[in-house]
Write a protein that binds this DNA or RNA. Sequence first.
RNA 1: AGCCCGCUAGCUCAACGGUUAGAGCGCCGCUCUUAUAAGGCGUCGGUUCCGGGUUCGAAUCCCGGGCGGGCUACCA
Length: 1152
Amino acid sequence: MPFKPVSSKTNFPELERDILRWWKETDAFNKLRKLRAGGKTWSFVDGPITANNPMGVHHAWGRTYKDIFQRYRAMQGFDERWQNGFDCQGLWVEVNVEKDLGFKSKRDIEAYGLAPFVVLCKQRVLNYSAVQTEQSVRLGYWMDWNDTNTLRMLSEKLGENPNQMLTVQGPQGPVTGTVEQIVGQLGLPQLGGSYYTFSDENNYQIWGFIKKCADNGWLYKGTDVMPWCARCGTGVSEHEISTEDYPDLTHTSITARFPLRGRANEYLLVWTTTPWTLTSNVAVAVGPELTYVKVKQGDDVYYLSEGTVKMLKGAYEILGRLKGAEMEGWTYNGPFDELPAQQTVGGYAPAELRNHIGNAQTSAVQAHRVILWKDVGDAEGTGLVHIAPGCGAEDFHLGKEFGLPVVAPIDENGTFIENFSAFSGMSAFEVAPKVIESLTQKNYLYRADDYSHRYPTCWRCKTELLFRLVDEWFISMGETYDKPRAQLKQAEKARSLRYQIMDVVDQIKWVPQFGYDREMDWLRLMHDWMISKKRYWGLALPIWECVECGHFNVIGSRDELQARAVEGWNKFDGHTPHRPFIDEVKIKCEKCGGKVTRIKDVGNPWLDAGIVTMSTMGYRTDRAYWEKWYPADFITESFPGQFRNWFYSVLAMGTAVTGQPPFKALMGYGTLFAEDGRPMHKSLGNAIEFNEAADNIGADVMRWMFARTRYETNMLFGYHVADETRRMFLLPLWNVYSFFVTYANLDKWTPDRRPPTADRNQLDRWILARLQSLIAEMTPLLDGYDSPSAARAVEPFIDDLSNWYLRRSRRRFWKSEDDGDKQAAYATLYEVLVTLTKLLAPFIPFVAEAMYQNLVRSVDANAPESVHHTNWPSVDEAKFDKQLLADMAIARSVVNLGHSIRAAKAIKVRQPLGRAIVVADAAQRESLTHLRDLAADELNVHAVEYAAREEELVSYQLRPNFATLNEKVKVLVPEPETDDKQIKKDAREKRKAVMGGLTTALNAADASQVAATVRAGSSFTLDVNGLAIEIAPADVLVTPQPKPGFAVASEGTLVVALDTNLTAELVAEGLAREFVRRVQDLRKSANYDIADHIRVFYTATPKLASAIETWREYISGETLADEMQASAAPAGAASVEDGFDGEKLTVALVKK
RNA sequence: AGCCCGCUAGCUCAACGGUUAGAGCGCCGCUCUUAUAAGGCGUCGGUUCCGGGUUCGAAUCCCGGGCGGGCUACCA
């Protein structure tokens, strides 16, 4: 047996585990790398996955694309880097470690100790990178994976003692160092494997980038009021907050009344949704152009904007109107003037921020007044805006503009600092009731209501953000110029990184196209990049800020740091550049010579991910290697968030450092949802874990689902879709393969028996032509990163192969004589299947490998060892017979029409008919001529003929082709060049009459005659409302209409009729086929092998018995019956009784 | 709040301003089959989101509105 038997029922997940084992045993991946080494390069850069949790099915989506395109390029002979990446540093890891330890705040971390805390962060990353590595391998994702035992060993030893010495084997030899040092080198050339963004190289490379920014004058320390997470104790930059982080939340909104100084019983009505900020009120803003009203309620007089009077409680009387500008400078008593902080001259803030609140000469209490602000609206509230420069971003900027003091009430935990009396020590989240109570007591409260609005939350821990005064580090994105980009001068661009990135973005292919617009949108609007985080685990920002002179020293490399170190180098040396050890190093200030300490902040994690196109390709260490692989040819990641995150940081850093695009093409994909259209959530019960999906669905089915989905839209993932995918795609493919192996083994067919293509029949040449068209279609699609279109091209091919080629060819494989035709059938099906394994290898690597091993390797030891080592198929023009493809399309239409007539007339296919009559144009006749026998057989008719007198079968319907006639009518009835309504109306009427007249005139014409004229390619003249219009063949649509009462069906210009006259001979033939059918059913239900010969016993009513006698030879041939007797069966025979067409039958079989 | 995309059969989606708005899936009926939980044929299924307009002619173009998704901004 040349091939290993293949069951039509197979367990795909089990098959995949077998293949995984075999890939490992044969080292298939590394052999591929060696095969392609030195070839032309194709550079893929992996966007790092956060190694913080097991990977989900949504990760498998993107990783499927990454694998598809890397495998595809490898099959085209390209050399690749095959490096996966893990994102390691940052708050997401810290938060999980805190959770594991049960920590509540940053103080807990400091008490625990930074050094052991950082070790735990590293360990978590190592452990989950091992988990994700194993899951990726299970997906069939080929990369230069680390040995996961080594990763877990490193994690364990790091936990024991990071300073113990260790030697591990690298690709270029053994590497020795402390465990901490070894871990710091993961992914670098000496150790290989996935890159880790916590590696020394990655960190020092970012130092170089930040130094470059500082040299360009782009790095600055800024004071601002920014969103702050009180739980994490750090500022949150706008890069990090996305639309989903603004849920609808309900807070208490307060309308307070501020008594005007010098106007007895008159009050400003001021509205806020953040009660805690009232403690820090400094001013009230009004819109200068807005209209305000002075209203009276009881003894009190209020000011508010005219558009908001509906918020007043109860009856009121309008005393007057005024513009906001008229209120400028009015002074008032603030709601919390009794607080010492309010009374402090120059404002008030936490100690570490005192230097950052400016130098106002008054206290908040003294400063209380009405200021003008053009952005004040009156859609809600009162049209008078409470201004607290220490608690709001806009407020802060207004404060600067107007020289107002700043009152900043909370510390990094969101707790009120001292000098806020009873509020001191309270959390900003819990003071609202106390604020209301105090206002009520002082008679300042006008109303308090529940108010629902969108409010920002922390993207990591979902805590509500507070607006807080901070000092953070920024990279300036440069000015936004108020003119089109094309008009910018070179010098203007040189000053603005923003525009330099835009120029780079222009050079990149964005798939889908709208990605370009979104990135541009972000670049146009983005603010400066806040790169600092007041946390512990992450990039140590290389900024040493001098407390003496205020100068900040930026260090660009480890060597530079060593050269400038004046203290603590020995405590740091031998460690990775992380806290706490890096903080030991003090340097000499380059300006004043003072001893300087590093700022405490760590870096934004998108710095870590953004630098990888340089750090992983040896930008600093091996420039030749970097030149070879930079820029990347391709990256692909999920859209949400990445325009402001990874795409952005890679672009920004690539542009700043090299001025070149960091990648040439980007493919983005959407968001994965559960089958019910909702996000996957454990609590909703619709989540599917990756491991569970791999076990139940199998990786190949999952991959095909990902490959064929429209990447630019969201995807619905679930077991029903998966099941349908297996049923509609993978099973038919597998069954064709199983069919081939079963019969090829029976016939002991081997691939060396291949008749020349020219000697094969039409069906063979057709499926081979179809195969060429598939290759021709898929290749450019994959070149353009269009995975769904490429995958969707395969599906109809599988259908053609299974339900047309194979169904029509089956008999050729069964027949007993081993002739050239049978060889042709085997050779053809074999070629198609082997080519398919290659075309499908990037998509479904397991099934493709299983088929390839059995079909190719089992018979040819010289063939490439794995399907993934083979070359991508190219089109064989000699086999690409386009005429044959067109011919078959016509033949299949004829067959479809014939089947449809049979159904309509209730004549089953098993009943042979005399002839099918076809009405067709010349080209269709030409096509059909070659395939008449095939059509006749499929339709079960004795002959396919062409109609002698078409008029007997069809009448013709004529319709004008408006698409072409439109132009002619425009010339005959031109659009008048006048404004005269009457003339225009007349023209319109006339055109309408002509257009309508065309239909009328054609209906009146002799349809048969016009049809004949048009078919002959001649024109004729039609009189339409007195206009003589020349009608070309293209101007008229001729549709044949089957005449009622005949067995006729039509599709476009093709018409098929069936001769339904049933002669006695035809009836007998039909009965014989019914008999065969019963015997075959019986063979199957008795579990006979397809090759078993049998003896048949039967009793039948006379008409049937006579038919059986007449067709004895045919029946014997079809059923492998060596004997056929009209007698009772011997005991034990398989038998069945049945009745059909008015006849009765008992039939029994015995295996011979 | 602004912008972008979408809204067509139960579901997923087609249809250069052109004629009778089509496929696939699902349902149901019939049928074919010694590879197939398969295949073939057919029935049922439509206010093309709503309302105006332009046009001889609108699912398609324009205006207004509704719903869904996305992006961006976030404000008292």
